[in-house]
Structure formats: structure tokens, C-alpha cells
Simulated scan of single mutants.
Amino acid sequence: METGTMGGTGRPEWVGLPGGLLTLRRLLLLIWTVPLAAGTSLVLGLAVGPVWSAVGLFWLAVLAWGWVLLGRNWRSWRYAERADDLLISRGVLWRAQTVVPYGRMQLVEVTSGPLERRFGLASVQLHTAAAATDAKIPGLVPGEAERLRDRLTELGEARSAGL
């Protein structure tokens, strides 16, 4: 059975994102918060007094909080390929589920910026006739992104030919 297709229960088989996206986002969090913590502590310690250097701990609290939130957000992303449409689910507090019918897809592209390429990641962007239903699946392994693009393009062409 193909990844993401319906199982015997009639429920879609959800596929989560690989861990590379979480690693990338957590690394970016470290790159921003650690220098901010050190800089804040140094500047306030020298300008106001040593006790004020403790304000730099605020950025370490932001780091800890962001670390947890990034993990929860990453776990919330998933997608499922069904017979007639693609489901994309995301969100922790505000959950969103996007249903993209194959016949409505106009363009499926795979994108990968410099950081994504460095971490071996790619994103699949789906464009439909209605701008509000455009959808994106970030942080996929390039091979899976290309497979998904080819499959969605094939299914889109087959469904739109029947219109």
C-alpha cells in the first residue's frame, strides 16, 4: 500500500515530517538567542552594573520556551494522500486542516532555499485556482518532495481531464 493512502479502517494514513526541519529551526533559535543573551548581559553588566547582567537570562528563557514550542509545532505537521484529495494538517493551539482536491491543482512546485538545501530539505507548494486554498508542506526530504510533486501532478492531470 502506498504511503498516505486509506487503510482498511477508512481513515487516512498520516505522514509526519522528517526531523531535519526541527533541527534547522532549533539551530536558528540557538543562533539568535545565545548571542542576544550574551550581548544583553555584557552591555547591561558594563553600563548599569553586574546585577543587571542577569537580564540576559530572559533570552535563555526564550530559548527554552521556543525549543519546546518548535517541537510541538513540528509534530503537528502531517499530510495524507487520499483517493481524490490531499490532506494537510498543522497547528497546536489553532489547528488547521487543508483539503486540496487533485482536480483543482494548477501547479505543484518543489522549492529549497540555501538553509533547506544545507539540511537536505525541500518544500512542496500547491497552487490552486482559489488563492485561499494554496497549501505548503515544508521540511520534506528532496526525494519525497519530488515523488509527491510527480504523483500530485499526475493525479491532478487525470482529475482535471475528466472535467
Rank of each mutant, 00 (worst) to 15 (best):
V55T: 09
L60K: 09
D85K: 12
R26V: 01
L69W: 15
V108Y: 07
V55A: 15
S76A: 14
V141A: 13
L87F: 14
S53C: 13
G49T: 12
N73P: 03
W67M: 02
A161I: 04
E144I: 10
A80R: 00
L70D: 08
V68T: 07
R82W: 03
T111I: 07
Q106K: 07
T3E: 14
G66Y: 08
L87C: 14
E144S: 11
T40G: 14
E144N: 12
T128C: 11
L87Q: 12
L44V: 07
V43S: 11
V48K: 08
L126H: 04
V110Y: 11
G139S: 04
L60P: 06
W52C: 09
T5C: 02
E146R: 15
G49H: 14
R82N: 07
W67N: 05
L155K: 09
D150T: 14
I88Q: 11
L63S: 02
L70T: 02
G143Y: 10
L36E: 03
L93K: 14
K136I: 05
R11G: 12
G113E: 02
L24S: 10
L93E: 03
L30F: 11
Q106P: 07
E154R: 15
L126R: 04
G66C: 06
G45K: 01
R26C: 01
T153M: 04
L152D: 13
R104G: 13
A96R: 15
T5P: 02
R95P: 04
L36I: 09
D134H: 09
E116H: 15
V92N: 10
D150R: 15
G8H: 02
R147N: 04
G20V: 09
E13S: 15
E146T: 13
R104E: 12
L27D: 03
E144Q: 15
A145R: 02
L63F: 13
G16P: 14
G66V: 00
V15S: 11
A145P: 07
L36D: 06
T3F: 05
V108P: 08
L57M: 09
H127P: 04
P12V: 14
I88N: 12
V108W: 06
R149N: 05
R26I: 00
L36N: 10
L69D: 13
P114Q: 04
M105D: 07
V34K: 08
R90C: 05
V51W: 15
G103V: 01
P101V: 04
G10W: 11
S76C: 09
R72H: 10
A61Y: 08
Q97K: 13
M6P: 02
T23W: 06
D85Q: 13
G56F: 11
T133K: 08
V99A: 14
L24E: 01
M6Q: 08
L148A: 02
V124E: 00
P12H: 08
D134V: 00
L63H: 11
G39K: 06
W67G: 02
L126P: 08
A158D: 09
Q97H: 10
G20Y: 09
A61M: 11
G10P: 08
M1S: 12
